[in-house]
Design a protein around this nucleic acid. Structure first.
Lengths: 207, 207
DNA sequence: GTATGTGAACTATTTCACAGCT
DNA sequence: AGCTGTGAAATAGTTCACATAC
């Protein structure tokens, strides 16, 4: 079994989104070419990505939407749910907690922590904000497996270490710093400023 | 002049962040190895990235932090400012507008638009929300060059088309859909659900 | 006939390694 | 002696193209 590129995983979610829509519309089968068309990807890319995980298609006919949907959900862990804690309940942290887009994806935001004692005890949506000192207890009691870091850059590494010490092995980091983490911990960086700045580079350097 | 990889641009912003910090701390020079250490990148990567844009280092000594800072700012268009409009003022749109991280980066959020007439006229931070019908006028009057799409998936393509018709060539897309755009338009996708879901794949598949 | 699955070819990106500058 | 800048080697990822299956 060869290594699956990171991009493949990301694209599988795109395929799943599209396939789910197709299944909902009662479209029974789809070819890699059509699926690629709808997702702005090549037919070869679609087949190669799926090929990492098995043989889901039928030669001459394409893919059965319902079968592929189920297969992808299985592969991507959609049959499970994960408990998420957000650390740092500022503008961004609050927005993430309230953002409805996550709820349908098996990701449950069940804890929010902040260092600011003025915020502790207040509610964001359904969740009561807890003190960051409670982190170890919260992580173990609420069986948190994913931590979202939404604190300023200066505090990010420390928060990451607290989360890891408490046993969290998956981090989504919104702080604009490179976190130092051991091999077994998976970090995804989302640097919104950098995304925007990349566009400003494009503007500054076009033609 | 050869093509510069996308990743290089993104990393230049990381180097700039670090170099700015170093300059602030009155550290005068730094080697590619040290800079790599601080950013979790290899020394070769640092040199190769910088090498796309010129010769900034001194053999045997490394890079002068102030010189490199200025050079990077120039390359990355930090000497210019760009006007940004946010379309869709929900949780996410509001958070982006209020998020202070952007202000210092030459990116000015100066317009917010929404289709919901109940929101029109209300304020988010300093900005008054305008109707999406006003988009062409707003883009030209306020010289908008970057559009942020923070509407639900169903409306994203339409919003993109309105922005492009008004002359906007840079889009930051938060909607979970693949936008169809012509060659001359630059789109950056930020799919927060997908980032989180990728972590759930990791959890579901780790040993 | 049509569309998959997959090695082989190609392209992009990263790492190596060292000649050459200070 | 120390560290850059950069071709060359290695690795990763995408596209091609076709034998094979239905």
């Amino acid at each position: 079994m060869k290594k699956v590129p990171e991009g493949t995983i990301s694209r599988l979610f795109i395929y799943l989104r599209e396939i789910t829509e197709l299944a909902r519309m009662n479209i029974r089968t789809i070819s890699s070419a059509e699926l690629g068309e709808r997702t702005n990807l090549s037919d070869a890319q679609v087949r190669k990505d799926l090929g990492y995980f098995g043989h889901f298609g039928v030669s001459g006919a394409g893919y059965d939407t319902n079968e592929l949907k189920q297969a992808l959900e299985k592969i991507l862990g959609k049959d499970k749910t994960w408990n998420v804690a957000v650390v740092g309940v500022g503008q961004l942290g609050s927005a993430l907690i309230s953002y409805s887009g996550f709820k349908k994806h098996g990701l449950q935001f069940i804890a929010a922590l902040d260092a600011d004692t003025k915020k502790v005890g207040k509610k964001v949506g359904e969740i009561t904000i807890e003190s960051i000192g409670e982190l170890p207890k919260v992580v173990s009691n609420k069986k948190i497996t994913i931590g979202i870091i939404a604190v300023p850059a200066e505090g990010a590494q420390e928060v990451a270490e607290k989360l890891m010490a408490a046993g969290v092995e998956c981090l989504l980091n919104f702080a604009p710093v490179s976190l130092n983490v051991p091999e077994n911990v998976k970090v995804k960086d989302v640097d919104l400023s950098r995304e925007l700045e990349t566009l400003s580079y494009f503007l500054a350097n076009k033609k």
